[in-house]
Write a protein that binds this DNA or RNA. Structure first.
Length: 745
DNA sequence: TGTGTTCGGCTTTTT
DNA sequence: GCCGAACACA
């Protein structure tokens, strides 16, 4: 027991040993909150308060869950037979629903398929396409997801989104309803449904609720600041027979409001659980004093936060380095050169490059490759999003659930087997007419007593052999479930028997060799599911539920990732790049105060990842699709007192200008920057300030458009009637429209 | 009718 | 720099 509790400070010890009733742990960055959860679980087990499997810990990513599990087992000498239940909300719900979903009485069976974001977007596109309407699928997806995460009806959700007129609303509701029906028919659930359906189940079925609440005797939630109302509802239901819930979080690090995380969950915890004990962890063990001060200087500009002071006994440390690059290439060059120098000094140094958006990674990757440096990139196109991986898993999904029409469509002609658009359209018509699934339509069309003069004989033959293939794969899969390696043998069989491997081998394309290697890796991943009870199912679920952050490999020295993906991690050396207005804070967040505050918290998260050394860089200009933009330095940068920064720029930097002349700052106004860049390109404009400014439409204004209705101007390129406006129309998304086609609202 | 190729438009953050 | 639509060809 002693060794479990050793090395905890007073507050941590209290958090660990306060086992009964609701506990709120407000934990600053680097204060050891994840450790507290691990030790607390170990303590509960060692004290015999509960069996390991009766302890539920919810983490933000699968990766974090895995690490937590290892940590706990290490603390316990691994003597215990059962394992604590550690997973993400989504995995937890998937597990519950696999057992219980038939109780919902909505026609779902335990063979249901999980649709990831891509799948659900494709499903929405299918529906919109059939309707010939011009709704933006991504925007629609956001609405549908938003309503589900808040636990309200879509109609109600749309009420709260101003500027959507009645017509748009009807359209959106119609498509959304069709979407939900198509999921139901496919026996499929999207990410949000996993939570929603679980909550419904527990809410309306007393015995199931009590069963699970009794089962999970102690519940712990990590990263509580990023939970949404639906997740909160789930927590409430799971604690209905007891109040043993310990939530850990930091309101300063809430960065998922765009996914409907609600900071009030943490701010109002004491209202939801009146008997709650509140414990604050305020000592930071991670960063130097200098790094913490910079983080503090930025976050203190947020109005909406719980007062908290984070302190450290760590040394003062190096100053935070500041670098003003000429352009994005120069920025990458500087970062990679510096990384090389750091590694020469200390070959095992762990270094992270953090950026706001995924596409910023490209230049750093190129530069690192050129220099022959190995790196790991987290996110972007995650392994499980690659086409070849999605296609093999689509085969598995179809085998397990032939109703899954979306997956079926995906593979019906991969590899090419003579079933093209025309045939597929015909099948879909049959399916709609007879109210059957796509798979049943195939069965119908290929049955002997049917005659379809609309389809040429060769199409029918192609369908017949496809039908036979799927049925053959199903039989083989069933057989293999008794083999010593049921999962990996099945995956291997699919890759071969579908002709997929052959297709890749015979193409001669070098990219296809890489795809082949990816399939090899998929096969490797499947091996670890061979000895699980429902291995194949779990393997397929996992492929849908793993996040991009899960691919983080601690062994790699250089890691590239978004700030979001870096949450919960720490690195001795951090490069925070692209600190420019428009990029970070992102221009889409610059309109609203609450979005700006979230960006600021994101900045706080980025800075507090650094342990010893932090570099902050920005580029004076940056190219994005052929156009060069001059970017003002991030306003977060301006919030850092200049005495806290050490300027190592190779050119006269923005910061140095700021030091010599405060007025200089103004020349970097957005307008000035645009004018300058126009001048450099030789584009003339009226030198008179007022005529440049005289156009009445500006970013942030609302405008009316004949077709799309009311929308907000996000960006303006050019001037006068021919200015190109980027406008966000609710329900339709962003459109680029010339100024003369809209009027000011 | 199916397959391969080229061109244009867009690019926040993610379970 | 990536995906999807549109087009040319078999």
């Amino acid at each position: 027991m002693k060794h479990i509790l050793s090395n905890l400070n007073e507050a941590q010890l209290q958090a660990v040993t306060t086992t009964e009733g609701p506990v709120l742990v407000l934990a600053g960055a680097g204060s050891g909150k994840t450790r507290v959860i691990a030790v607390r679980a170990a303590y509960l087990i060692a004290e015999r308060k509960a069996k390991p499997h009766n302890i539920l810990a919810v983490t933000f990513t699968n990766k974090a869950a895995e690490e937590m599990r290892e940590r706990i087992l290490k603390l316990l000498d691994q003597r215990n037979i059962s394992k604590p239940f550690i997973s993400t909300f989504h995995s937890l719900c998937a597990k519950i629903l696999r057992r219980e979903i038939s109780h919902l009485q909505e026609g779902y069976t335990s063979e249901f398929t999980i649709y990831d974001t891509d799948d659900s977007l494709r499903a929405i596109k299918n529906i919109i396409g059939a309707d010939e309407k011009k709704l933006n699928p991504k925007v629609l997806q956001r609405y549908i997801s938003g309503a589900k995460n808040l636990g309200i009806e879509l109609e109600e959700y749309l009420e709260e989104t101003p500027q959507i007129d009645q017509n748009q609303k009807c359209e959106i509701l119609k498509v959304a309803e069709k979407y939900q029906k198509s999921l139901n028919a496919a026996n499929a659930l999207d990410f949000d449904d996993l939570l929603l359906k679980t909550v419904q189940l527990l809410k309306y079925n007393d015995s199931i609720r009590e069963k699970y609440s009794d089962f999970f005797k102690y519940i712990m939630i990590d990263e509580y600041q990023d939970t949404n109302p639906m997740q909160f509802a789930l927590i409430k239901l799971l604690t209905s027979t007891h109040d043993n819930v310990c939530v850990v979080g930091d309101d300063n690090q809430s960065i998922y409001a765009f996914r409907h995380a609600d900071i009030r969950n943490i701010l109002d915890f004491e209202k939801h659980y009146p008997k709650a004990k509140v414990i604050k962890l305020e000592q930071n063990y991670r960063s130097t004093k200098n790094i913490l001060s910079v983080a503090e200087e930025i976050i203190k500009n947020n109005k909406n936060r719980k007062p908290k002071r984070l302190w450290t006994e760590n040394e003062e440390g190096e100053k935070v380095y500041y670098f003003n690059a000429i352009n994005a290439e120069d920025e990458a060059r500087f970062v990679v050169t510096r990384i090389k120098e750091i590694l020469q000094e200390n070959p095992n140094q762990k270094i992270a490059v953090l950026y706001r958006t995924n596409y910023q990674s490209r230049l750093f990757e190129e530069m690192l490759r050129k220099q022959g440096l190995r790196y790991r990139i987290v996110g972007a196109l995650s392994f499980y999003q690659r086409a070849e991986i999605k296609e093999i898993t689509a085969y598995l999904k179809v085998i397990l659930n032939p109703s899954d029409s979306l997956s079926l469509e995906r593979i019906i002609n991969v590899p090419p087997r003579g079933i093209g658009d025309a045939t597929l359209n015909y099948l879909n018509q049959i399916a709609i007419k007879n109210e059957i699934t796509l798979w049943d339509a195939i069965l119908l069309v290929t049955s002997e007593d049917q005659f379809h003069k609309e389809l040429p004989q060769r199409s029918i033959q192609a369908l017949k052999s496809f039908k036979n293939l799927i049925e053959y794969l199903q039989k083989e899969t069933a057989k293999l479930q008794n083999s010593p390696r049921p999962v990996s043998d099945t995956v291997s069989m699919i890759i071969k028997e579908t002709g997929y491997e052959k297709m890749l081998l015979s193409s001669g394309d070098t990219d296809d060799l890489a795809r082949l290697e990816n399939l090899e890796e998929l096969l490797n991943a499947s091996v670890s599911y061979d000895d699980r009870e429902n291995g194949l199912r779990e393997f397929v679920d996992n492929a849908s539920l793993v996040s991009s952050a899960d691919s983080y490999d601690e062994a790699e020295r250089i890691t590239l990732m978004t700030i979001h993906a870096a949450k919960g991690l720490e690195f001795p050396v951090v490069f925070l790049v692209g600190m420019e207005n428009g990029l970070f804070p992102h221009f889409r967040s610059m309109n609203q105060e609450k979005d700006m505050e979230e960006e600021r918290r994101l900045c706080y998260v980025a800075i507090t990842r650094a342990m010893k050394t932090l570099y902050i860089t920005h580029a004076t200009e940056r190219r994005s699709n052929r156009e060069t933009y001059k970017n003002e330095p991030s306003l977060f940068l301006k919030e850092i007192p200049k005495t806290m920064l050490e300027d190592i720029s190779e050119i006269p930097s923005w910061l140095s200008k700021q030091e010599t002349d405060k007025q200089e700052l103004k020349t970097y106004d957005f307008l000035e920057a645009i004018k300058k860049s126009l001048l450099e390109k030789g584009i003339k404009f009226a030198s008179d300030e007022s005529s440049f400014e005289s156009q009445s439409i500006h970013p942030g204004d609302y405008v009316l458009h004949k077709r799309y209705g009311r929308g907000m101007v996000l960006r303006k390129d050019g001037k006068g009637k021919d200015a190109k406006l980027t406008i966000n129309f609710p329900g339709f998304g962003q459109k680029k429209i010339l100024a003369k086609f809209v009027e000011k609202a």
